[in-house]
Write a protein that binds this DNA or RNA. Structure first.
Ligand code: MN
Ligand code: MN
Ligand code: ZN
Ligand code: ZN
Lengths: 128, 128
DNA sequence: CTTAAAATCAATAATAGTTATCAATCTAGT
DNA sequence: ACTAGATTGATAACTATTATTGATTTTAAG
């Protein structure tokens, strides 16, 4: 939980595992997954699963939106207000009861946009 | 492509495979996946990946929103207009260039809401 | 302090959707 | 008919996640 709260990077289970080993050298990946599942169940964290094969985790359990860079894979928080009114609008269509919604934006991050000088090995911070 | 266009159910690769076998009995699952990847690459279809472990496919390549039932897993189209202005709003925050966005609503579908008489085996149409 | 039950853990096996591989078959173009 | 290239079915490989297991640690009595 401390590791997850200490970063803004929406890390993968593997990255969290690496960080955890720095302080608990003998911890196993299974324990990381087990505790992430418990924290998620308890509503303290969020699991983000996009098209990728792996999940990312978010220490902020409040609903907020994300920007995913199509080039480097970075996931960043988007600083616009949550549109609660959309949920009511959807309910009016009669499709069912809406409990929550999820919104993601995809594109080219500011970091990748500026470094047009495609230097190799640029796969982002703790992407993998 | 015809199979995918003929349903509104956002099916899984497996369901498409079953349908395809009805007309091409010897087709393999690999061919289904290969052709889905080609169609997706070509922008003719969309791949929808939610929290689930498997992907669903959508014969409508135009951006539109979805409602996912937390109980039966059904995925339905949501009939509200696409909010293009959100992309511009996000770009103003300086996070990067936004190419597209994806929005999903989660809740209890009208079908599940009415059948309060929890009859077992109610896992939805072609969910799995 | 002793001891037995409960909780937690690391290590490892199992799962499952998806991809990659490859020899066989099909398709055009000549 | 001949041949190069594309497509296919069968099957193996991959990988993130989950389940299992046996051992260690923690907890709470007696
Ligand atoms: Mn976030
Ligand atoms: Mn759709
Ligand atoms: Zn980027
Ligand atoms: Zn439902």
């Amino acid at each position: 939980m401390e590791i997850l709260r200490s970063t803004k990077s929406h890390p993968t289970a593997d990255w969290i595992y690496d960080q955890a080993r720095k302080v608990l050298p003998s911890i196993s990946l299974g324990t990381v997954y087990r505790n992430l599942a418990i924290l998620k169940e308890d509503g303290q964290i969020m699991e983000l699963s996009y098209g990728s094969t792996y999940s990312r985790y978010d220490g902020n359990p409040e609903n907020h939106y994300h920007f995913v860079c199509l080039k480097c894979g970075r996931v960043e928080d988007v600083d616009i207000p949550v549109r609660g009114e959309l949920e009511r609008e959807v309910e009016k269509t009669g499709v069912g009861d809406v409990y929550y919604h999820r919104l993601e934006f995809y594109g080219l991050c500011a970091h990748c946009r500026s470094s047009r000088t495609d230097k190799p090995g640029g796969a982002g911070e703790d992407s993998r």
